[in-house]
Amino acid sequence: MKSIIDYIKEIISAVWSLLKGMQVTGYYFIRPKTIVTQKYPENRKTLVMMERFKGEVVMPHNEKNEHKCTGCGICEINCPNGTIEIISKTITTEDGKKKRVIDKHIYRLGMCTFCALCVKTCPSNALAFSQEFEHAVFNKALLTKVLNKPGSQLMKGVE
């Protein structure tokens, strides 16, 4: 007799435990305001990433098409997996001195691990992170980018 009572008690407590769980889901079911899901491709226009979000490395240019990269190569040395490659060239300045400037600052997005060592160690703050995160492309070659814009120059006053 006792075992039967225990058996029934067990069933009741089991059903009760399930109902308690259902209480939580029911609570949220009748409160649509608590929904946190974002409809991603639809909300693209209003989607704002955090300001520090590490999307991809960019080289900010000012309105005169000038950047701050001196071509010192510290980012290239600090990069752990060879994402950055700097190709420099020698030009003759107006007062006849020879000067080394960057020709191409090559950045391979496909290899980047976003460790931020290049941005942090850059002595002239020439690099920054953009908030762009939609990196998918159909052609692998598109992931190799040249960061300095064509025809751009070193900003005056940056050594």
Binding site: F114, C115, A116, F129
Partner: peptide, 21 residues
């Protein structure tokens, strides 16, 4: 994490001697 470190999972927030930012 995203707000402070810039990444969500693989944060890379420490560096020898302190923090990145």
């Amino acid at each position: 994490f995203e707000e402070t470190c810039g990444s969500r999972m693989i944060v890379s927030y420490n560096c020898p001697g302190g923090l990145m930012y």
